[in-house]
Write a protein that binds this DNA or RNA. Structure first.
Lengths: 165, 165
DNA sequence: TTCCCTGCAAAAGTTTTGCACTACT
DNA sequence: AGTAGTGCAAAACTTTTGCAGGGAA
């Protein structure tokens, strides 16, 4: 394990350090958040939410639509978008805008992490680094601003594309 | 070695540390880049590029269109977009996608900086921090990726909105 | 039974493109 | 003269919305 830079020790893949909620856990949360708001649970919402919770991360609306269609061919695009917005309001989803035209969505509620996006193959790698987080807070404090969220994205060639190049 | 506690000393407003090229300087560069590529200089391109170089940063295509119209009412949206793309290819412009629907454009070629965006008033504050840059490179190295560019955006309430709140 | 929810299609917002015409070099 | 550039309008793409009908509580 290299130790020249102290960043080395701090960089680690984002995947869960404590138990990650299952799709079922998240469905229960979704239902209770809906109830809290006086909104209804419906077959479409459940289908969309379950597919979203079970699928790989950083999905686009288009991809989600295609996946949901496999389970429930009746669902329309409008309901996909409306449900994505709803999941966001329920704090169960993050909406991300990488350097593309369309938004990508990921399951919320895990430890904060940032992203590396491969310019060539589009692969998205998550990582986390506590020093980075601390430094951002320090910068915000110095500027006198109140931080609500932030975005830190690295772009380049992933290890695979780099060698294949 | 980056440390969060001394970030204070490193945070400074981004504005130029060495002489900033004038709009005229940039126009000359633009013309020579066009020539290199066998492309033509035209009245519309000059009008758009000059307005862009002289105007405030982080402009949207819509705002630029309105400004250019004042100088040359004949210019169409298509030419605005085509010229923005051209300026990008000439490395004279950065395209940014903050948390909005539309892209914003800024003059390229100055020292690298990052952005704070106010959630309330939309104000954009630039800042730079060398520790942050170093740390990003260290992270990239650790992940085995080749970095081409990155994006670091802080969102929240600016000092003004924070007190007015 | 009451609204909320859904699907469809149309609209909206941003950016790109086809085409005939214009104008640099 | 020849080729790249322009304006307009239409298209493309992503996301939102109006509306009439359907379904959860």
């Amino acid at each position: 394990m290299p130790r020249a830079e102290n960043a080395d020790e701090e960089v680690r893949p984002a995947p869960e350090r404590r138990r990650r909620p299952t799709a079922d856990d998240r469905m229960l949360t979704f239902h209770s958040r809906l109830r809290e708001r006086g909104l209804k649970s419906t077959g479409q919402r459940d289908d969309i939410a379950r597919v979203f919770f079970e699928l790989r991360r950083h999905i686009s609306a288009e991809e989600l639509y295609a996946e949901v269609k496999k389970v429930n061919p009746h669902v329309g695009y409008a309901t996909i978008y409306r449900t994505l917005k709803l999941l966001k309001e329920c704090d169960l989803l993050f909406e991300r805008h990488f350097d593309e035209g369309q938004a990508r969505y990921e399951v919320a509620g895990e430890h904060h992490h940032d992203h590396f996006i491969c310019d060539r193959c589009g692969k998205i790698i998550e990582f986390e680094n506590d020093d980075l987080e601390r430094m951002q807070r320090a910068i915000a404090q110095k500027m006198g601003v109140l931080l609500t969220h932030h975005k830190m994205e690295l772009y380049g060639l992933c290890a695979d594309c780099r060698t294949r190049q």
